[in-house]
Design a protein around this nucleic acid. Structure first.
Lengths: 157, 157
DNA sequence: CAAGATTGAAGAGTCAATCTTG
DNA sequence: CAAGATTGACTCTTCAATCTTG
């Protein structure tokens, strides 16, 4: 925002909360990216591998899980496929769908990165909070997820 | 993250909080961008104009205020200058510095966008929270901001 | 026609290199 | 040499257009 020109449309408390969210976006997220970069990944690619490490997934479901557009997913999957971290095969039941699966190399990379990533998340956020604060944070932000998760405003094109 | 492969390195509560933060990044921020796009701006450019609407600023200070790298600022300022939304002049006291100032057109654009932006922020976050939740959110995230704001890990190149 | 998926172009962000002034 | 600032190359994201299958 920038502290609105003509007085405050957000009160002092709201302003602090908003500043915190923007700080997370402008400082916290780049910090996560810095951990991924030496491994040749961006954060969302790690998310894809982590999701696939549980079980193979339709590309559509994968995109929905990570709140990505299909085209964004497609570009990321191209890279991951070229690096041999995932494989892709047509779905047996629906010729339109594609199933993505993680490879052994992909699984190994996730295993290598995961501890660093969790440590990042702790160092960035949770090391500084009391359990009750974590709870409050989660409950407050759950609204965002619920509200936006079921919104018509998304979609690829 | 993606719910780590081998069990939970984050407990249930932390997981919910983390999910909320990522949801904000993956759903909330793009929503803000969608409001800016019809005006030919990205969110951070609006932030720059909003900051400059208070008073002229050295580019360095502007970058620090918005937690941007100098090169990122430079690229954005090129665009804003070409569109006539800001002007730039050398600093009188230090030949290395540059002072940025908003133009009348820039000020008008901020005035046009600001109400929509504030409404976005309310609709996304604060309309759904009790005052005490806003307070808790702000206090929890203030730690993040403080912690990351004074970190050695940043810098342009 | 709708759903799943891919592609290419344009805009934005990051990094490294560079330039100038103190 | 350090600080302020700029540039170019490369990568990532978005959007619109397209293709295929149900």
């Amino acid at each position: 925002v920038g502290r609105e020109p003509e007085g405050g449309w957000l009160n002092e408390t709201e302003w602090q909360a908003w500043r915190g969210l923007i700080a997370f976006a402008m400082l916290g997220l780049p910090e996560l990216e810095r951990t991924m970069r030496p491994h040749g990944l961006v954060h969302v690619e790690y998310g894809l591998l982590a999701a696939l490490s549980t079980r193979p997934l339709r590309l559509s479901d994968l995109a929905a899980t990570l709140d990505m557009s299909q085209s964004r997913l497609s570009h990321r999957m191209n890279k991951l496929r070229e690096r041999g971290l995932v494989t892709v095969r047509p779905c047996a039941h629906d010729g339109r769908s594609t199933i993505a699966e993680i490879t052994e190399e992909g699984r190994a990379l996730v295993g290598e990165i995961a501890p660093q990533h969790v440590e990042d998340v702790r160092r960035l956020i949770f090391d500084h909070l009391q359990p009750c604060q974590v709870k409050a944070l989660g409950e407050a932000l759950a609204v965002v997820a619920d509200r936006l998760g079921s919104c018509p405003s998304r979609g690829d094109s």
